[in-house]
């Protein structure tokens, strides 16, 4: 029963959502709307589950002194400080929700902004900035015309990058820009569309397997 009931629910709701799409009746649409309204509620529970999961993993890591456990302290500090600042105003008054009468609360809390502007932004910017160095080094070592396909990729990449350079004058610059636009609009779009359609068909196949109970890994293997 513990396993059959979830499979049954997945089958009923999955089949309903698939069939509903082709039934333009107001009852069918009302039921659809009802289920859609539930989606954001599930989203909020997923957020709570995420916080619980991160807390549990981090606390366990600290308790059992696992490798690099010290980092988990900062994870928990960051998580709960941001939550605390999100619920308080600049005078440490507690609020369940933001209100126009109170200044400096929630994401406008000066402490929240301080952590966001001077910790989160620099950390993420640093992570992204590191990419520039690795891309430069990798492009020098790996981007080589070893065969026909690699050569075509290399030429396309060079044209797209040359488009950014302003040193070619109007005539060459315009041709480069036109060629780069053609590369993006035609070969890139064709390849991206093929990927999108392939992914779409794959999603349909996976959804069918889940709805029909062929794919059961989401329930765990126990």
């Amino acid at each position: 029963m513990k396993r059959q009931l979830p499979f049954f629910l997945v089958f009923v709701f999955g089949a309903f959502m698939a069939i509903q799409y082709f039934v333009p009746h107001k009852t069918s649409e009302a039921i659809y709307e009802f289920f859609i309204d539930i989606l954001p509620i599930i989203g909020v529970f997923a957020l709570a589950l995420g916080i619980w999961s991160l807390t549990k993993v981090s606390v366990d890591k600290i308790r059992y002194r696992r490798e690099n456990w010290q980092y988990a302290i900062f994870t928990l500090l960051g998580l709960f400080l941001m939550i605390l600042f999100g619920f308080t105003d600049e005078n440490w008054g507690f609020h369940w929700r933001m209100s126009p009468e109170v200044a400096g609360e929630g994401t406008d809390n000066p402490n929240f902004r301080l952590l966001f502007n001077y910790v989160m932004i620099p950390i993420q910017a640093t992570m992204f900035a590191l990419l520039a160095f690795f891309i430069a080094s990798a492009s020098y070592r790996a981007f080589r015309a070893r065969n026909l396909l690699a050569t075509l990729l290399l030429i396309a990449a060079l044209i797209l990058m040359l488009r950014f350079t302003p040193f070619f004058g109007d005539w060459i610059g315009l041709r480069l820009s036109e060629t780069a636009t053609w590369l993006m609009n035609v070969p890139n779009t064709a390849a991206q569309r093929a990927i999108v359609m392939g992914v779409g068909l794959g999603l349909v196949a996976t959804a069918l397997k889940v709805v029909l109970g062929i794919e059961r890994d989401y329930m765990g293997r126990g």
């Binding site: 891309i135 430069a136 492009s139 020098y140 070592r141 981007f143 080589r144 015309a145 290399l154 990449a157 060079l158 990058m161 040359l162 350079t165």
Partner: peptide, 11 residues
């Protein structure tokens, strides 16, 4: 420009 030059020099 530097990355372009590096690609060319790598080749």
């Amino acid at each position: 420009i530097v990355i372009l030059a590096l690609i060319v020099l790598g080749n």
